[in-house]
Structures are given as C-alpha cells and as structure tokens.
C-alpha cells in the first residue's frame, strides 16, 4: 500500500442542530485521482472546506501527507492547492496580478512567480486577457484562472470543487491531460463533481457521502462488485451512485404523478 495523502478520522461538522458531516473516515492514497461524490446538501463542500482549512471541524482528526492539519496548518497548506466553491478570486486584479499574488503568498520568489505566471496563462489560453480584470472574465475563464492559481506552487495534493463547470470542451481536455500528468508524478487529486461521467473517466477511486455520512469508498471495481446485478454486466458510476444514494422507485412514483407533463 502506498503513502496515504489524506486521512480523516471521525471528521464531524455541525451547524447548530444540523450535522453536515457526521464521523467521516476518509483514506486517499498518494497519486490517486479521487472522486468525492454525493447529492446536493450531502456534505461534500463542507468536507472539502475542512480539508483545505476554510472551515474548522467540530470534532475528528485530519491528516494530510502525514501531518496533522490542526497542528501544522501552515505546513499542510504549503503542499496543497485548492479550487474552492466560488473560486476565491480577487476580482479587481488582472489575471497575471492574481497569479503573481498567489505565487508570493505561497512563498515563491519573484522571478519564479513571473515565469510560472506566464506559462500558466499561456497554458490556460488566458495570455491575451492578462490585462483584463478578473471581474470581466467569463465564468469559464475564471475557473481556468482559479485552476492556474491552485497549481502555481506545485502542490502535492490538489482539491478541486467542480473544476470543469463552465469550462469549454477544448480547455477541459487540456486540463484533464494536465491533471492526468500530475497524478502520474505522484500528485493526489481530490475532485468533487456532479458530472458522474467525468468522475468515472478520470478517477480511479471514489467515495460517496450521503446525508453527512460516508456510505461507500474504494476503487470503481470494488464499488461495482458491491452492487448486485447481472453476471458480467459492467455498471456505470451513475448506476452505482443511484443504487447507493438514489431512491429510484420513489422518483419513478413521483414522475408518474406529473401526468400533465409526462
């Protein structure tokens, strides 16, 4: 078994009476492309916020690259990159100014920051908009810039919250290639997305959270094996997901009621 990149023990977060994340035990090996799935409101974003230092857990433990997050937040943050929900951009900076700012915040020296900024802007096809304020970027351009900012310091773990939302097919293809190369070099990628086809294509391992609790975790093959079905039939991730968290029978009954529409 390889090095463990992310490990949580009984990770819990409560908001008043609501328990958004309830005793989650995650284990992600280094170099894995890991998909973290769940229906709306399941606790995905809350978990990713805790794992990236944007939200303090109510209880439980988080260990990234062998370091206790709560004990060594700075050392952990130095080694992770994040595209958070909402992207966290300073909209009144230009693309190059923002990347330069982020590079400096991660402690890169000036010349390295400038070089990487130029290379990333080129790669993300944003070089011709380097003088444009981020506020004037399209959603997809902002997403690409947030991704560039997340990798500028060469992180060992990358957290991506819906990274391909709004990104055109051309750029998405290039990004997927980049992420694939990164995992080959041992970078761990922790990805949440509602587009299950993307997760199925990119991720080797998946965890599913439902109503704050981790209900499945493992490689795609392991998850398939745990789902009953015809011999030799290869279940898609969507079928696995629906069989674990979906209520397809109830959905069907509700659909039947919409006679005026269906």
């Amino acid at each position: 078994m390889g090095e463990i990149a992310i490990r949580t023990e009984q990770l819990t977060r409560r908001f008043g009476a609501l328990t958004a994340v309830d005793g989650v035990d995650l284990r992600v090996n280094a170099g894995q492309f890991f998909g973290f799935l769940g229906p709306n409101g399941a606790g995905k974003s809350t978990t990713i916020k805790m794992l990236t230092g944007l939200l303090a857990p109510t209880s439980g433990r988080m260990e990234l690259l062998g370091l206790d997050f709560q004990q060594n937040p700075i050392d952990v943050k130095r080694q992770i990159g994040v595209v958070p929900e909402g992207m966290g951009l300073f909209e009144r900076l230009t693309g190059s100014e923002y990347l330069h700012f982020v590079g400096r915040m991660y402690g890169l020296d000036g010349p390295t920051t400038v070089k990487r900024t130029a290379e990333l802007l080129d790669f993300m096809q944003l070089a011709d908009r380097e003088k444009t304020l981020i506020a004037d970027y399209s959603h997809g351009m902002q997403k690409k810039l947030a991704l560039a900012a997340a990798v500028i310091h060469g992180p060992r773990i990358l957290f991506l919250d819906e990274p391909f939302e709004g990104v055109d097919a051309l750029a998405a293809g290039a990004l997927k290639s980049l992420l694939g190369r990164m995992t080959e070099r041992g970078v761990t990628i922790f990805l949440t997305s509602h587009v299950l086809e993307i997760v199925e294509r990119l991720c080797s391992h998946v965890a599913i959270i439902h109503q704050g609790r981790l209900v499945a975790q493992g490689s795609l093959e392991e998850l398939r094996a745990g789902i009953p079905g015809a011999e030799g039939e290869k279940k898609t991730l969507e079928q696995i997901f629906l069989s674990i968290v979906g209520q397809s029978g109830a959905e069907q009954a509700r659909l039947e009621e919409l006679t005026w529409l269906t």
Partner: peptide
Amino acid sequence: AFEGRGIQSYFMAPVR
C-alpha cells in the same frame, strides 16, 4: 470590505 470571495485565498494560503 472589498475582498469579496478573495478572502478565501488568505485562509487557503500557507500564511498567518
């Protein structure tokens, strides 16, 4: 006041 969503950058970066 004017940081907007950029405030998250401060908490994600390895700085105090």
